[in-house]
C-alpha cells in the first residue's frame, strides 16, 4: 500500500520521491544485493515534528544518510528546504545528530562547539555567545572545558545535540537521539525538542522510543524492510481503534472460582491475565460472572505501539495465543 501524504498548508522541508538504495556486497563472482530502501515517497512539512519508526535494519538510517547526501541514491530524488542538499545555503539551515555521535577525543566540549559553529559561519564574540547559549541549553556549561575523552555517553549525546543546534537550524535531523541517555537526560532532551518545535524548527526524528514519538511528533511514518508502510498524524493514531493489550489484575486466591476457564492457571501463577483489547470486555464480564474480584485493569501498550506493530504486521505474531488468553 502506498502511504498517502497528509496535506497541510506548510511547505515541504523534505520532499522524497521514489527513493531507492541498493547495497552491493560480496566479491565479483558472488555479488550480494541488499535493497535497503524501495521507492520511498515522503513529504515532511515545515514547522512539524516527524517521527520515523521501524525495526532495526528497516532502512531508517539509510534514509537519513540519503537525505544528507552521505549516501547516493540508486534511484529517486530528495529536495531539502526547497533546494539540493549539495547547496551550502541549504546545509546552513540543517542540524544533524547521528546515532551515538563520535567526536575527536582530543578536544574539549567547548572547542568542538566552537569548531562546528565556525563551520556555520559564526566568528568572534557572536560565536562565543552562541556557544554559551548552547552550553546552557544542553546543561554542559560546567563540563565544557573538559576533554571529550572524559565524557559519559549521555554527555556525548548532549554535545551531539549541541553541535546540531549551533547553526540555529530550520530543520533538525536526529538519528536515535535518546540512545545512551538516562531518564533525566531523556526528559531534558524531550523538553528541548518540544521547545524547538514551539520555536518553529522542523524535526525529523528517527527513533525506537514510542513515548518520544507520542509526546513530540505531529506525524509518524513507519518504515519496514525498506518500504514506507504508513504515514499518519499522531492525533489520528491516538484516536484510532487499533487494539492494545491489557493486564487484568486478579488475586491468585480467586483462581478456584475460575475452574474450567483456560486462564485459571495463569491467574493462580501470575496474579492476573494479559488479554487483547478486542476481548477485554468479554473477559471482564466472565470474571464478574464467576464473582472473581478484579483489582485493576491497565493497558500494556500504547496506541502508537499497537499502530506500529499493526503496520509492520507484527501484531498477529505478538498476539499469538498466550497462556491464559480466553
Amino acid at each position: 500500500m502506498e502511504p498517502t501524504a497528509v496535506m497541510t498548508d506548510s511547505p515541504c522541508a523534505i520532499q522524497i520521491r521514489g527513493l531507492s538504495k541498493t547495497y552491493k556486497t560480496g566479491f565479483w563472482f558472488t555479488p550480494k544485493v541488499t535493497h535497503a530502501l524501495k521507492g520511498v515517497h515522503l513529504d515532511i512539512y515545515e514547522n512539524q515534528a516527524f517521527g520515523l519508526m521501524g525495526l532495526n535494519g528497516a532502512g531508517k538510517t539509510t534514509l537519513i544518510k540519503l537525505v544528507l547526501a552521505l549516501l547516493r541514491p540508486t534511484a529517486g530524488s530528495v529536495m531539502v528546504l526547497g533546494g539540493s542538499i549539495a547547496q551550502r545555503s541549504v546545509r546552513q539551515q540543517i542540524g544533524y545528530l547521528p546515532e551515538l555521535p563520535y567526536f575527536s577525543k582530543q578536544h574539549t566540549g567547548r572547542e568542538l562547539l566552537e569548531y562546528f559553529g565556525s563551520l556555520h559561519g559564526f566568528s568572534g564574540s557572536t560565536l562565543q555567545h552562541r556557544v554559551d547559549e548552547i552550553l546552557e541549553l544542553i546543561r554542559m556549561r560546567s563540563a565544557a572545558g573538559l576533554k571529550v575523552s572524559g565524557y559519559s555517553k549521555g554527555m556525548l549525546q548532549r554535545i551531539g545535540i549541541g553541535q546540531a543546534l549551533i547553526g540555529k537550524p530550520k530543520l533538525l535531523i536526529c538519528d536515535e537521539p535518546m540512545s545512551g541517555l538516562d531518564p533525566v537526560g531523556y526528559k531534558e532532551m524531550r523538553d528541548i525538542f518540544i521547545d524547538l518545535k514551539k520555536a518553529g524548527t522542523t524535526l525529523f526524528l528517527n527513533t525506537h522510543i514510542l513515548d518520544e514519538v507520542e509526546r513530540v511528533c505531529d506525524r509518524i511514518g513507519i518504515l519496514h524492510e525498506g518500504s514506507l508502510k504508513e504515514v499518519a498524524p499522531i492525533s489520528k493514531i491516538l484516536e484510532s481503534s487499533v487494539p492494545v493489550d491489557y493486564w487484568i489484575d486478579v488475586d491468585s486466591g480467586e483462581a478456584p472460582k475460575l475452574s474450567g476457564i483456560p486462564f485459571q492457571e495463569a491467574v493462580q501463577k501470575n496474579g492476573g491475565v494479559q488479554v487483547s483489547g478486542l476481548v477485554l470486555a468479554e473477559t471482564l464480564s466472565l470474571l464478574t460472572s464467576r464473582k472473581a474480584q478484579v483489582k485493576g485493569v491497565r493497558p500494556l501498550s500504547s496506541q502508537v505501539e499497537a499502530y506500529f506493530l499493526n503496520a509492520i504486521g507484527a501484531q498477529a505474531h505478538l498476539n499469538r495465543p498466550r497462556m491464559g488468553t480466553p
Binding site: L70, S89, P101, L119, G167
Partner: peptide
Amino acid sequence: TEMDQKAIFLHLAKPL
C-alpha cells in the same frame, strides 16, 4: 576516528 568511528559524518553534514 574519522572513518572507522564515523566522526566524518558530523563535518560533512555541515555547510562545508
